[in-house]
Amino acid sequence: MPRPMRFGPLLATALIVTGLAGCATRPPASDPEALAEFVANNDPMEPLNRGLYEVNNAIDTVALRPAAVAYRTLVPGPVREGVRNALGNLRAPTILMNDLLQGEMDRAGRTATRFLINSTLGIGGIVDVAEWQFGIRGHGEDFGQTLANWGVGEGPFLFLPVLGPSNLRDLTGAGVDAVASPWFWFGQGEVVEILRWVRTGMTVLDAREGVLDTLDTLYATSLDPYATLRSAYRQRRNNEIRNLGEPAPEAAGGTGFGVGVGATVPPAPAQSPR
């Protein structure tokens, strides 16, 4: 996805400028409990983040959620599963790189094997033959997690429109993953450019569809969805960093909503779209 990267510096500047105006006040040391909570929330830019959260909700209401509902309604389940598998397969080189950078040779081996099997027998990754026939289960990994493994702290919490909850470390990781991916470098010309845009669009659509029920339940039951998402994101990331999750993430990238938006304990049952 080379094109969106060009807006990177612009976005960063805008964030810093508005961020300075939107800082939360740190509680005084005389109130240790309030201070402890402030530290635990890790959200010094809360006013700005809440503003961006509203922007995200506006975009989500008019575009992302309706698109995800339409996608679920119009496209049959097996086709959506194929799309999800193919997108996951395209992420495999990134996952492999991060497995290796974390020194997880066993997991790296599984990722490489899966990529070889699914790209060939699985028809470009559409069918997850590796799990279905060989029992080799996939897992997610990203540079944000690698940085965490190297001891890099998470930095301030960020809420970004479309991308969702993140932090400085995970956002940086997502940028590195994008640039380090072979798909960023291979090929040129109009067709390749179009394919890249298709992939980006399908990733957003697939990710939003993957959390449709979870987010619907969260917005319906939380008294402060922003605070719920902030807490759940941090917990989920810590779980991912320690590689504790059992099932492979369905539609997760490094940053953003991912799968286990948590909070819906137990996860919402799959509903027919409303």
Partner: peptide, 23 residues
């Protein structure tokens, strides 16, 4: 407490309720 995929219900809910009180 209930913990789904590493996300604790009581921790998440404490964060939620505290935000409502503060705001």
């Amino acid at each position: 407490d209930l913990v789904a995929e590493g996300t604790s219900l009581r921790l998440t809910q404490r964060s939620e309720y505290s935000a409502v009180v503060q705001r």
